[in-house]
Design a protein around this nucleic acid. Sequence first.
DNA 1: AGAAGTCGTTGAGAATGTCAATGATTGACT
DNA 2: AGTCAATCATTGACATTCTCAACGACTTCT
Lengths: 151, 151
Amino acid sequence: MDTDRGARVHSSPTLDADTSFLLARASAMASAVGNRAVADLGLKVRTYSVLALAVEVEPSQRELAERLRLDPSQIVALVDELEARGLLERRQDPSDRRARIVAATPAGAALFEQARTRIEDAQRDLWAPYEAAEVEALRALLRSIAYSDRG
Amino acid sequence: MDTDRGARVHSSPTLDADTSFLLARASAMASAVGNRAVADLGLKVRTYSVLALAVEVEPSQRELAERLRLDPSQIVALVDELEARGLLERRQDPSDRRARIVAATPAGAALFEQARTRIEDAQRDLWAPYEAAEVEALRALLRSIAYSDRG
DNA sequence: AGAAGTCGTTGAGAATGTCAATGATTGACT
DNA sequence: AGTCAATCATTGACATTCTCAACGACTTCT
């Protein structure tokens, strides 16, 4: 029952119809939630993503950069930090001596498991108000956009 | 179909199921498209959003900060720049002399119209592969998340 | 009137994004 | 075999964006 006596809370028709704008806001919202969920483990969603890939994929740094949509130079710093904390290690790729494979240590894998349950709990809360099927449809659509080559 | 002879292109089950991660990637993708669409007008999606609100809402700087999810101090710089270009102006709020209302000039409104059609064209391309109803459902869901208070 | 809160602003420091250059290595071509 | 372009990780520089704390001007509460 919003009254509008002087309150003049207009909304912007253009921005409210702009999927990208909504995407940006929703994304900022969701990552703030994620960051808070793993903050006390000394992680952010950034470092959590690196850890996840190190555990589940063991990619080269180049692959890491592509998957996270980051410049390769940022990967260096990110991996440096997590490596210094003993959470992952750089291995030589036996088939290409230029490449470094990023793999989690046991400590890294253990921390990842903790972080994963926290992230998942927080996400469950965030998406709880919506139909599971609806959220799954959203996910599918996002996946398609996220990995399209138009970026 | 993908062979896997040595190619080892694993995907990360955790990240591929993480709606926030997908949201972040899709958002980065979409805003890159948007930035390119208005680059030759000397705008980015950031400044375009400010302009849109100045035209359609005439908010205070505080409101601007909340709607764009930015720190008030960033609004200062953003408005400074657009004001210097003659695209908008700061007015005194007659009901509160602390507040400054941000409103577009005629030049600002004209530039906004140009930018809006470019953004909309680019978006149309981006979302063309998907069902209209599907995209509208996505938009509704994003709108709800974007303006929830859990951020 | 006085206290407490809000608004815009300034300034500082961290985190992120972007780009160019380099040494080591690979793959393609001759 | 030997050259040459391309790729990978890294470094460094710079711009943009984020986050916080402080301030004067003003408002609201009591």
